Simulated scan of single mutants.
Amino acid sequence: MFDTKIAFIVRNDLAAWQRMNVVAFLATGIASAAPDIMGQPYIDANGHRYGNMAGQPMLVFEGDLAGLQKAHRIGLERELTLLPYVFPMFSTGFDEANREVFRAQDPHNLDLVGIVLRGSKKAVDKAIKGLSLHA
């Protein structure tokens, strides 16, 4: 049905609120980076108009830091649409500060707590190989 796949990966040692926060922020990022995934607005039986959501399924996986770093590396190699979230971003309060702490990270050893990948099914499957669906 879809030529592409969207996969979120969150670190398995985070508190529940952190996992949800990471996925929420990454979801906004993938919607911005790939606006073609967005469906039409929802309209209820009374004609009330609501916003639109992605029209493509998105899967959420979990893994340890090494698993996220591996998926990140493969995502870069395969030129997937990729958005990262690093641990120091939990301590900031606004977007500019998030970008500053991200920029300060070692690009070869990011302290990833979440990433989202989008691309061909085959390429995304390579990146998430060995990871489990989020429990």
Rank of each mutant, 00 (worst) to 15 (best):
P41W: 05
P41C: 09
P41R: 14
Y42W: 06
Y42F: 14
D44N: 15
N46F: 00
N46E: 01
G47K: 02
G47R: 15
H48W: 05
H48A: 11
R49T: 08
Y50I: 00
G51L: 13
N52T: 06
M53L: 13
A54W: 03
A54S: 15
G55L: 02
Q56D: 12
Q56E: 08
P57K: 15
P57T: 13
P57S: 12
L59T: 14
L59S: 14
F61G: 07
F61K: 06
E62D: 01
E62V: 04
E62M: 10
G63L: 04
L65A: 10
L65I: 14
L65Y: 06
G67H: 10
L68G: 13
Q69D: 11
Q69V: 04
K70H: 12
K70N: 15
A71I: 05
H72G: 04
R73D: 03
I74S: 01
I74E: 01
G75W: 10
L76M: 08
L76A: 14
L76R: 06
L76N: 11
E77V: 11
E77R: 08
R78P: 04
R78C: 13
R78E: 10
R78D: 05
E79Q: 12
L80T: 11
T81R: 09
L82P: 07
L83H: 08
P84E: 07
P84V: 12
P84M: 07
F87G: 05
P88A: 11
P88W: 01
P88E: 09
M89D: 01
M89I: 09
M89P: 04
F90E: 11
F90W: 15
F90N: 08
S91A: 13
S91Y: 00
S91F: 08
